[in-house]
């Protein structure tokens, strides 16, 4: 018996078996390929050389579908595979739809939203039935294909917490408004309330622009496709952000009503967070703060005041 390692042992210890179909003819392979042959392990393809079409033909016609690569080349192999077959990982969850991570993030988002706002049952007809309906609609809305990318990322807590409060608050407030006002683009307003100010954990160090531009920065960087309407909302947000600095700025009826509702709700939720007192007082004083700004239309403020009497906000 030879004292040296047998080929079989060597193959098991020092080599990894890979399928040849991973490799594409004429594309350089950055690692050597080996085969056990006549008692030796021979190199059939040198690192850095492309396997010719003939080489793959020959292998296939000889029934050889697998080759070995040296364990030293494993980092090269995994890098190459990542670039050459970026879809490799995804194929594993092929029929299961979005990954568990997305589902988990979405569930956490929803659960946190429900904690931030409660309705006062006495003001609603059949409150349980109503809540059931709202939750279903909220769930359906968060599962819109156009918004799923939000749950595919880790966001900075400060930004995502505003989004969590705002989106749930708005879905109920829009319900309340529906009998009195016509908001044409409810769905887009709701989507915008989720994504209007997001900052991913990864980009928090790179981003140096204005806070309201963080989502746009992310979208450009990660090349996310969004609808024209949402793009328009981002533009309005930028303009309104500038105009709000001017004394005497007021939302006029020519501006999209949906955006005004969004802005009103956002201001309320933000000022609610800043004020320190008990819940009821806090809601009243945050409303007073917004009213004193005198930038929103009077009827809309009246609707909000009425609505705040029917719900309770929580930190």
């Amino acid at each position: 018996m030879s004292e040296e390692k047998s080929i079989s042992e060597k193959l098991e210890a020092e080599f990894k078996k890979i399928h040849l179909a991973y490799l594409i003819p004429d594309l350089k392979v950055p690692f050597g390929l080996y085969l056990p042959f006549k008692g030796k392990i021979i190199e059939v393809l040198r690192a850095g050389t492309p396997g010719s079409l003939e080489f793959f033909h020959r292998m296939a016609s000889n029934g050889i579908h697998y080759a070995y690569l040296n364990n030293k080349d494993l980092p090269n192999w995994s890098n190459w595979k990542k670039i050459r077959h970026p879809d490799e990982g995804f194929f594993q969850d092929f029929s299961k739809g979005p990954s568990n991570e997305i589902k988990k993030n979405l569930a956490a988002y929803k659960a946190r939203s429900f904690e931030k706002l409660k309705i006062i049952p006495s003001f609603f007809n059949e409150p349980e039935f109503y809540l059931e309906g709202v939750e279903k609609r909220y769930h359906d809305f968060l599962n819109e294909p156009g918004i799923v990318w939000v749950f595919n990322e880790k966001w900075v807590e400060k930004n995502i917490s505003i989004s969590i409060r705002l989106s749930y608050f708005m879905i109920i407030f829009l319900d309340h408004l529906r009998d009195h006002l016509m908001i044409y683009d409810e769905k887009n307003v709701l989507i915008f309330s989720v994504i209007h100010d997001l900052m991913s954990v990864g980009m928090s160090k790179d981003f140096k622009g204005k806070p309201e531009e963080s989502t746009i920065y992310y979208i450009k960087k990660k090349e996310i496709s969004i609808s024209k309407e949402i793009n328009t909302f981002f533009e309005i947000q930028k303009q309104v952000g500038l105009m709000k600095k001017d004394a005497g700025f007021k939302f006029d009826p020519s501006m999209p009503k949906g955006f005004q509702v969004f802005s009103l709700c956002k201001d309320l939720v933000e000022s609610f967070e800043k004020i320190n007192s008990e819940t009821d007082q806090r809601m009243a004083s945050s409303f007073r703060v917004i009213k004193s700004k005198k930038i929103y239309e009077e009827p809309l403020l009246n609707h909000l005041e009425k609505f705040l009497g029917k719900v309770k906000l929580y930190l």
Partner: peptide
């Protein structure tokens, strides 16, 4: 377009049977 956007935005494959 929504279907295409889904995979484009999330960078993942989605299959429905």
């Amino acid at each position: 377009k929504e279907v295409a956007e889904f995979s484009f935005n999330t960078g993942s494959i989605y299959r429905s049977d």
